[in-house]
Nucleic acid binder design. Sequence first.
DNA 1: ATGCCTTTGTGAACGCGTGCACAAAGACGG
DNA 2: CCGTCTTTGTGCACGCGTTCACAAAGGCAT
Lengths: 251, 251
Amino acid sequence: MATGRNHRPATRSRGIPEATVARLPLYLRALTALSERSVPTVSSEELASAAGVNSAKLRKDFSYLGSYGTRGVGYDVEYLVYQISRELGLTQDWPVVIVGIGNLGAALANYGGFASRGFRVAALIDADHAMTGAQVAGLPVQHVDDLETIIRTNGVSIGVITTPGSAAQQVCDRLVGAGITSILNFAPTVLSVPDGVDVRKVDLSIELQILAFHEQRKATDELARNGGPGPSGAPPDDQGPEGDIPAVMPA
Amino acid sequence: MATGRNHRPATRSRGIPEATVARLPLYLRALTALSERSVPTVSSEELASAAGVNSAKLRKDFSYLGSYGTRGVGYDVEYLVYQISRELGLTQDWPVVIVGIGNLGAALANYGGFASRGFRVAALIDADHAMTGAQVAGLPVQHVDDLETIIRTNGVSIGVITTPGSAAQQVCDRLVGAGITSILNFAPTVLSVPDGVDVRKVDLSIELQILAFHEQRKATDELARNGGPGPSGAPPDDQGPEGDIPAVMPA
DNA sequence: ATGCCTTTGTGAACGCGTGCACAAAGACGG
DNA sequence: CCGTCTTTGTGCACGCGTTCACAAAGGCAT
Ligand SMILES: NC(=O)c1ccc[n+]([C@@H]2O[C@H](COP(=O)([O-])OP(=O)(O)OC[C@H]3O[C@@H](n4cnc5c(N)ncnc54)[C@H](O)[C@@H]3O)[C@@H](O)[C@H]2O)c1
Ligand SMILES: NC(=O)c1ccc[n+]([C@@H]2O[C@H](COP(=O)([O-])OP(=O)(O)OC[C@H]3O[C@@H](n4cnc5c(N)ncnc54)[C@H](O)[C@@H]3O)[C@@H](O)[C@H]2O)c1
């Protein structure tokens, strides 16, 4: 949320914690795999392992949905697939528009994983006239001038932004103006949207930087282990302005 | 200050909370933009607004790094850029390999945002012999047979997986075996790795499903508002309204 | 039916993250 | 040099999320 002054219960919708909602797709994926192998039931332990989470967490997550398990047996796979799908709103069709059909936008358009779960690429939109009319992934690229019409005609409520960062806020504003209430943003920009509009971002650069942080920490930990754990020869750094190694961690 | 239990200190590295680490790239991006506009100092309020966070949160985040501000004035932009860069490990070069040069892998390889901050695509790897040797983004695609050699030769410690999900775990195992300790996974798979290896995942499908959940909630809230606002009995029944399914468990 | 054994569902404790509110710090003008 | 005014840095309280641990539930064999 950009300007989150109005603290509404948006964090916890319908009693289902946000953290749980974020894990439901994970469970659903694991359950679908089991379903394809015709496995009738799973225990919380097995399913949790497949989803990469703690079994207690999984049981608590499911408890927010209802009592869908059988004690001593586990969960019925098909039944649970249906319940989670319904809870996530995947029993209906979600038309999606992608704005900015460059490298990334085209890759997303070609991605088969969309259709697998209720999501359907309804339209591709770009500002480049040279691109308008060209076919990408079997769909015509339409011009951004027609953005509002395209969205209203197709009843789209989810938009994906894959334009350069400089255009992202502008595109976002038009999407919201046209009635979009959910946005998935791949551009490296903080979008500001009115209340009632959800924004999620996917940021490669941020992910890499987080990895780099931990990577660096591992390296310095390694050095500290090898270099000698006795920092008795106190480093002369008190609060050096620049070029100074971060504070040493206490042993 | 015994941590009570000798749990894994992986959650909280060097005293900097994980949530803070995840926001540092955001601050860095905002600061870089200010730096390019030659803005000398920023207040926590301004910077927080640019980064889309609360100012108190920002100040607390920075307090973990040290006292880098000047009361009554704010933060020196250049200095803070340097401090955060150093903390994130961006003052050094991070060679990265991308495995799986399909739609997504090629898009990532072509992405200019990599080099902007210490990250450098060192090699592209694919299993398809027809692709080996071809140039993508000015780099030759190398065969997965040489994965270990490529990683060791280039001193790579960060790997990006953009193969199909079915190959992801296998590729992951080889990456880890070759010495990779940080993985960014785009495949829809839960990777299992040994201790000491960090995995972050980017999952388009999960993001869309989370959006769909909230979208559905908005729709039902809207309906409920129009239908009839029950004073306390907001949920009419805990089962689905019209798409009501029999709560039978196939036995 | 009865008792055993497995697994769920959840109460409770705990730790982390967030946001408030304010005292301390320092710049700056007079 | 002093007062004022701005902004930082943080103590504190609160709520969310995670995990433990266990009683209740139910299948199943006898
Ligand atoms: N390519 C990647 O792997 C990658 C990774 C992470 C993030 N990103 C981000 O995703 C975005 C797209 O990356 P890309 O590599 O595909 O860039 P790109 O330049 O290949 O594509 C951008 C497309 O957006 C179109 N566009 C520009 N302004 C527009 C507007 N106002 N309305 C509609 N369309 C517009 C352009 O015509 C172009 O086709 C960028 O913000 C980038 O930072 C990309
Ligand atoms: N394309 C997208 O927009 C998108 C979005 C989200 C997630 N994903 C995921 O990213 C992954 C890649 O998607 P894509 O659309 O680029 O698929 P793709 O089929 O276009 O590319 C996959 C590439 O991986 C290579 N490969 C297969 N097995 C390999 C192995 N064992 N070692 C090395 N390389 C191997 C293939 O040769 C191919 O070039 C998939 O897991 C997909 O689910 C893609």
